[in-house]
């Protein structure tokens, strides 16, 4: 079992004909993902290494039965790409693209909620999702993930998602599904969405959560864990030693007015019974302890 994607997921790559789309689309296919189609209105009718390219998602879905999409379109085209996928009836949309304006994110998030409530958007600005051994959508290096569970991973940072997978692999711990939700101001899928799904997934026995400074998503996740989760959680918050008021790259990662600090987030998580590490390696070690106790 897994959450959101599995071996039956059929994926259309929006932007398959671009250099990044082609590279990762083919890597994902090599991993075993059902890469069934690509889109590009100017290249409809062609193919990328045998994968047919359609003008839009509606045509791709009609021809291939795709039920998920992966967006590699440059930021100015992301709004239209998300709506294209939703209008085609695609249920799961992973948007890898970084640099999407926050107002676009806020608009398409709320338009999906209003007009296409069945669509789950992941990202933008995220590494994607991997159910090891079954389906890898996005830019995660598949070989660092050990299939089979019992741990689910959810992370706000791309590279720390890989770090988390790697730490668990080093300890021979398998992963049900690893979700990178991205660090942008309006993530399509939140920590809580993933925690809820992991709690409901019978094969996931414990969850590793990687957060970072800024915003209040980790505090909200802590409240959810306290009230709703029976499964143990380990965590790491990046930016423990970040100076206040400095914007550290991500639109989200800024500490201001004493809010959104790593200390506040770690306290909230500890208060919810989460085992909190001070770096990714420690969080992995804490998860190894949890798994040994299962």
């Amino acid at each position: 079992m897994s959450i959101f994607v599995n071996k039956d997921t059929k994926v259309v790559y929006q932007g398959l004909t671009g250099s990044q789309g082609r590279y990762y689309g083919m890597l994902n296919r090599d991993y075993g993902t059902n890469v069934v189609a690509g889109t590009n209105p100017r290249k409809a009718g062609t193919d990328v290494e045998g994968v047919p390219v359609f003008a839009n998602c509606t045509e791709a879905v009609a021809a291939t039965g795709a039920n998920a999409s992966c967006i590699f379109i440059p930021a100015p085209g992301v709004f239209a790409a998300v709506m294209d996928a939703a209008e085609a009836g695609i249920e799961f949309v992973a948007c890898i693209t970084e640099g999407v304006p926050a107002h676009d994110e806020a608009r398409f998030f709320n338009m999906l909620k209003r007009d296409h409530p069945g669509v789950r958007l992941l990202g933008p600005n995220c590494p994607g999702i991997i159910t090891p051994g079954e389906c890898n959508i996005g830019i995660t290096a598949g070989h660092i993930a050990k299939p089979g569970g019992p741990v689910g991973i959810v992370s706000r940072s791309g590279t720390l998602t890989y770090q988390a997978l790697y730490e668990l692999q080093q300890k021979d711990i398998g992963v049900t599904t690893c979700v990178g939700i991205g660090g942008d101001p309006v993530p399509g899928t939140s920590f809580i969405d993933c925690l809820e799904a992991f709690e409901a997934d019978p094969d996931t026995k414990a969850v590793m959560m990687i957060g970072e400074i800024g915003g209040s998503a980790e505090e909200e996740a802590a409240a959810f864990i306290k009230d709703n989760m029976s499964k143990p959680v380990s965590s790491y918050i990046a930016g423990v030693t970040a100076p206040p008021g400095k914007k550290m790259g991500h639109a989200g990662a800024i500490v201001s007015g004493g809010k959104g600090t790593a200390a506040a987030k770690m306290d909230a998580l500890r208060d919810a019974g989460v085992r909190v590490g001070l770096n990714p390696t420690e969080a992995g070690e804490l998860m190894a302890e949890i798994v040994a106790e299962l």
Binding site: S157, G158, Q163, E212, A253
Partner: peptide, 8 residues
């Protein structure tokens, strides 16, 4: 590479 890893 990546803001999260850089902060970490």
């Amino acid at each position: 590479n990546g803001a999260g890893l850089a902060m970490s």
